[in-house]
Design a protein around this nucleic acid. Structure first.
Lengths: 215, 215
DNA sequence: AGATTCTGAAAAGGACGATTGTCAGATTGC
DNA sequence: GCAATCTGACAATCGTCCTTTTCAGAATCT
């Protein structure tokens, strides 16, 4: 009764895992193009994505449930990218005072975020208002940035650099400022250099996080 | 050759203009419900909107080209609403110093913006990333808020209350902070009273717009 | 009253896209 | 070499929604 050839999974010299991973990679890469540029996610179709990825719809449904799942993955990837850039900068700025650390972080963030317009668009535009699920994911990721600022502020407060208080709301507002400014900047609403943008944001944060009163 | 009954336009006791206006009103009111709450604009359909408005698709296409046009109108209405609330507050705060004026304005804005969740959602969520056309409209309206802050800052600078400089970038960032904070607040990301929110924003603006150095 | 216009419901016609199924050929292990 | 599996293209199915058209009845003006 045969059953001679066993399914070992290797094909084309690659293991099943490798092949799957590569296909996901190709889908995600193509999605970065399709979703991250006009007309964007809401005009995207499975067929177009598959064509761009050089794969078939059948293979698409073997990897993802639908386009929204791809967008969700992409959003996480984009966030990880900037987050790691910031964390690198943060470790590099160990021992510095709050102002210096934040200036470093802001530079890293702005650079990483505006580095690729497609990524920026996915994080700031395409992800908005798609579904409750994605909205939750977005808020979770956003809160990590707030957390980072709060942690830094509290550490600075513990060192006596700034006044100790609840910085959560201020940090949330500041994150909004960062994102809003980057969005408008890249939309061409105003002309400015990267240094100007970083400086303005650093000044805003400095103003939000004042030194303790000395009167 | 007949042509006896002339088209005067009145029907049901109302002129053609009145009837049209009332229908537009009903469509827009229904759209505020349909677009301003989950699942929102991108799940909306002409049929559902018409049913909610108690009108027919035929009448819909007599008033609007498509759903996007309705959303665009709604966005303008929502913006006008908050804008007028702010302008009222501003005239009421004539003669006050920058800090006081801005506190008044911020209170008016936050109150008006968060008054109706559907309006907030349309302005901050549904409008994003729909089309280039709408994106343009959104940026235009956003720039009016920036303009307002810049104008106020320059007036304050002329009075010597704050340092004279280019406030455009700072104002843009600040508007981003306001919107981001309101969005997160209404999304339940943190608990705070209206006073707290207004105070934080006022403090942030105060920090961004410093008094001239006195060293 | 009678010709005409306005109204609102319903349905027809089309376009579009998601998802699933089929299948011939390439590639594998033995 | 052979049976089995993997691949990728294609088409079929299916549902949804947009947009236009039709039409019978209500309301109008003379």
């Amino acid at each position: 009764m045969a059953a001679v050839a066993g399914p070992t999974g290797t094909y084309g010299g690659r293991s099943a895992q490798e092949r799957r991973a590569e296909r996901r990679e190709r889908f995600l890469r193509a999605a970065l193009d399709q979703f991250g540029d006009r007309p964007g996610y809401r005009s995207a179709s499975v067929a177009a994505l598959c064509e761009a990825a050089g794969l078939s719809t059948r293979q698409f449904y073997e990897e993802f449930r639908n386009l929204e799942e791809v967008l969700a993955h992409l959003h996480l990837l984009v966030n990880d990218w900037t987050e790691q850039a910031v964390l690198r900068a943060l470790t590099g700025a160990a021992g510095l005072a709050f102002d210096q650390r934040m200036a470093t972080v802001l530079r890293a963030y702005v650079t990483a975020a505006t580095d690729d317009p497609r990524r920026l668009r996915i994080a700031f535009v395409e992800i908005i208002g798609v579904s409750e699920e994605l909205e939750r994911q977005r808020l979770v990721r956003r809160s990590r940035w707030v957390e980072l600022i709060v942690t830094e502020a509290e550490a600075a407060a513990a060192r006596g650099e700034i006044a100790p208080r609840d910085y959560r709301i201020a940090a949330t507002a500041f994150i909004g400022a960062v994102n809003g400014l980057l969005h408008d900047w890249t939309a061409g609403q105003f002309q400015a250099s990267l240094d100007q943008v970083v400086d303005e944001l650093a000044a805003l944060l400095r103003g939000a996080v004042r030194p303790p009163d000395r009167d």
